[in-house]
Design a protein around this nucleic acid. Structure first.
Lengths: 115, 115
DNA sequence: CCCAATAGTATCCTTTATGATACTATAACA
DNA sequence: TGTTATAGTATCATAAAGGATACTATTGGG
């Protein structure tokens, strides 16, 4: 077995990891399109720097689309690309397993943060 | 929408993240049971410290089972728990999406490492 | 002229994650 | 007695991720 039998998993994690990416994706999944500041308001604890960088990374992967309106003050809208929407079922599977796992850990009285 | 609509996703990522966890899990999926040093030899670039810590975390989540034989020199076997095996379909979905995504990025001539 | 609003950058700092290296215990064996 | 094997720990160093804060451009409105 090569070390990279699981390379796809690492690619997937790479694309989704980052403290804020899943949150951003779920907001875009729910609302369709959001302006930069709408996202910022929806995720109060994120800093501008992190919001920008996470969006840039998602854009780089062509999961998120960035549309700039040439006006002042600026208007920039973010949404999932068609290609990005293909990730939704995976996010839902992760969501499902994670929710179950959280419950499992609580029921077994294990601190999920420790491990 | 609460910030935590996607909490499950974060739990899932938490459980799978770590530079070596997917690799370890795939080896255990394939071989069933492996001793510490067998894993180490199968993943040449991992340090002992990282192998230990990643296994400890997987064990903490009850995804991996650790069986110690009281003998000298020590013998410790690692395997997926029954509960841990439930994560296999998720790993496979991630693997599938990730593989497709990798291909997509290559075809579109995008450097996957940059973003 | 001054202020607000938007979508950012730039800089510096702290926290986590990962890595390199050396070290441990114990029994069998030469 | 010294050597090997196993499954680790301990310590220190570096790299990567995240956070705090201040700053920018532009234009409409008071």
């Amino acid at each position: 077995m090569q070390d990279k039998t699981c390379h796809g998993v690492e690619v997937a994690i790479e694309a989704l990891v980052g403290k804020w990416k899943p949150i951003i994706l779920f907001h875009l999944m729910e609302k369709g399109t959001l302006r930069f500041n709408e996202l910022k308001r929806a995720i109060p604890k994120i800093t501008q720097k992190m919001l920008t960088s996470q969006l840039r990374e998602l854009e780089h992967h062509q999961i998120v689309n960035r549309k700039v309106y040439p006006q002042v003050p600026p208007k920039v809208e973010y949404s999932l690309t068609e290609y990005g929407k293909e990730i939704i079922p995976l996010l839902q599977s992760m969501q499902e397993w994670g929710t179950t796992h959280k419950k499992y850990m609580v029921e077994h009285n294990i601190d999920i943060a420790e491990g």
